[in-house]
Design a protein around this nucleic acid. Structure first.
Lengths: 244, 244
DNA sequence: TATGACAGTTTGTCATGACATTTAGAAGAA
DNA sequence: TTCTTCTAAATGTCATGACAAACTGTCATA
């Protein structure tokens, strides 16, 4: 049972429940409220912070949903522990590498506009004869090849140049062009490197590659982009956390 | 704008907000409320179903969190569409295959208890000299080999026999023994098949394998089990949906 | 015709109040 | 000593009421 000192600014535009939830979130992350700590009951917490009980509950709802605390009827509320990093957000290799503190580099191997080949046309839900960008790029980290990336997207989405693509990640460019990413269907499998892949990735022909295929959708559910990326298996894998 | 007929049973132990949310959930899944349908405002919905507005909001909160509807202040509430299958639940290959309508079979190659090797001891957070089960199994579907699975778990968790393991999935056996799964950290990569793997999986030596490593934790955060599974890449891949 | 202001609409936030359900511990009975 | 019942504590559900913030559409003015 711990008393947590929180300063609540009632003149702030930030909702009260959000201020309280954030303060508890921070205290849990920083270990001020360690796992298994029993929190005061809702009624007394609400009194302590001079809030109504539903407002206090709303703050706790947030923490429960974030997996930081557990509530049991008749018992009380207890800290579970710091949040689990699940890797479920729609991101890009470029952004992921940046988040890790790496400096991703891109070499554009192909940038062309073509009439969408049949499987691409289907994946992107385009009509016959639609034009798409066909991109092939090599991604390097610290000067070392990591992935070969092939992507297809409608030309109507954005104007892309070699220079753009070598300066920033594709998803960043699309976002800047107003594309509204909502979700992506992703499949992770494996393959072995052929001669060209091995050459580009500075690996042995026949070595293992992690293969990721993805179709990204915007908020109306329309496909934006599809692609196939292959990564050196000795340098990359996909981490995720599954929950019950 | 659509009127949805809902029967609410006020004598039922099921909370009112849950009954309403379920009815809307069902209507959205079944296309009765198709994507982009504008729902009535909260106040009039609450009146229609003879509920208080916070109760109606609580039902809508559920739908918003499940990604079925979107709410905009000043505008109203709109159906997004049926839920997206994200594959984020902690499951097992056995259960996944069953869910797909397949009949998984298991051949036990190794079942032994050993003193935990150092990397396993660390992964499972065990003390020096602890005994663990070491399991190696072949999983087949329709008589065709799909995956080679190696798992390690403390002997204190359950009594496992060859017969048990060939009759049911490991996770099912552990659940039946009272193990409380909470989450698992999973990594998906790639490798190439050595001679033994190729032989067991009826594949070519040097062919691509999808590699999944996982450590499962119980609800107290203690590691339960860790394992490394390799799958024929031509037969299996990991599908997931990422959201923004 | 275009822009800005205003009004109406809808969701978001917050409060007070009350009852129901579940849990754990204590007390009583066998 | 063990089992059952009861009580207190805590969360879960639900209601009424009120104000704030964001959005859209309409109207007036330049």
């Amino acid at each position: 049972m711990t008393d947590l000192d929180i300063s609540i600014d009632r003149s702030s535009p930030i909702p009260l429940y959000h201020q309280v939830a954030s303060a508890f979130d921070k205290a849990i992350r920083e270990g001020v409220l360690p796992p298994e700590t029993k929190l005061e009951n809702e009624i007394s917490l609400a009194k302590r912070y001079n809030l109504s009980r539903p407002t206090m509950r709303q703050a706790m709802d947030r923490l429960v949903r974030d997996g930081l605390v557990v509530r049991r009827r008749g018992v009380g509320t207890q800290v579970i522990g710091p949040p689990v990093r699940r890797n479920l957000r729609l991101s890009s290799l470029y952004n992921d590498l940046q988040d890790e503190g790496s400096a991703p580099q891109t070499r554009v191997l192909t940038i062309e506009t073509v009439t969408a080949p049949e499987p691409i046309r289907e994946k992107l839900g385009l009509s016959e004869g639609s034009e798409v960008y066909h991109l092939r790029r090599l991604r390097l980290v610290d000067g070392r090849p990591l992935a070969l990336m092939e992507n297809w997207l409608p030309v109507t989405l954005a104007q892309l140049t070699r220079k753009d693509l070598e300066a920033d990640g594709l998803y960043n460019l699309l976002r800047r062009a107003g594309v509204d990413f909502r979700m992506a269907h992703q499949r992770v499998g494996a393959d072995v490197a052929d001669e060209e892949q091995a050459s580009q990735l500075k690996a042995e022909t026949g070595s293992a590659l992690v293969v990721m295929e993805r179709t990204a959708l915007d908020s109306s559910g329309a496909p934006i982009e599809c692609g196939r990326h292959v990564y050196r298996a000795d340098r990359y894998a996909f981490d995720i956390t599954l929950m019950n």
